[in-house]
């Protein structure tokens, strides 16, 4: 059974979630490209990491539940991994950026 044979009341929310999540993720990466400084660039990608990924994961959950005929929630694992790991990456990257900028300044004006 393929996914587009699912009942319409399931396909409508899935489609809306997909469009919304795709737009948010695209905006996040566009922000990564457009922002001027590194610290500003840290912010937009987390839109894709939270809402974008969340929307797509819920949509995927709905589709696989509909296909299996029972609730399938294993996509929750990916969401849990993203939520627990992204603060660590962000913290280390911020620390690295502060450290590297300080050491560069030191090199320039000793």
């Amino acid at each position: 059974m393929s996914a587009d044979m699912l009942p319409p009341w399931l396909l409508l929310p899935v489609s809306l979630l997909l469009i919304f999540g795709g737009l948010l993720t695209l905006l996040g990466s566009l922000g990564l490209l457009r922002m001027k400084t590194f610290y500003q660039r840290m912010h937009p990608p987390s839109m894709g990491n939270t809402m974008g990924a969340g929307c797509v994961l819920i949509a995927s959950m709905l589709v696989s539940s509909g296909l299996a005929g029972r609730p399938v929630v294993h996509e929750v694992l990916i969401a849990v991994f993203i939520v627990t790991t992204s603060p660590i990456t962000a913290m280390l990257l911020m620390g690295a950026a502060v450290h590297r900028e300080a050491s560069q300044r030191e090199k320039r004006e000793p």
Partner: peptide, 24 residues
Amino acid sequence: MSALFNFALAFAQLCFILAMCCAA
């Protein structure tokens, strides 16, 4: 409704690919 679903799939995939291009 399946037409909307197929459009949404293609649209979201296009969005992600463009987002990957931005990140690259």
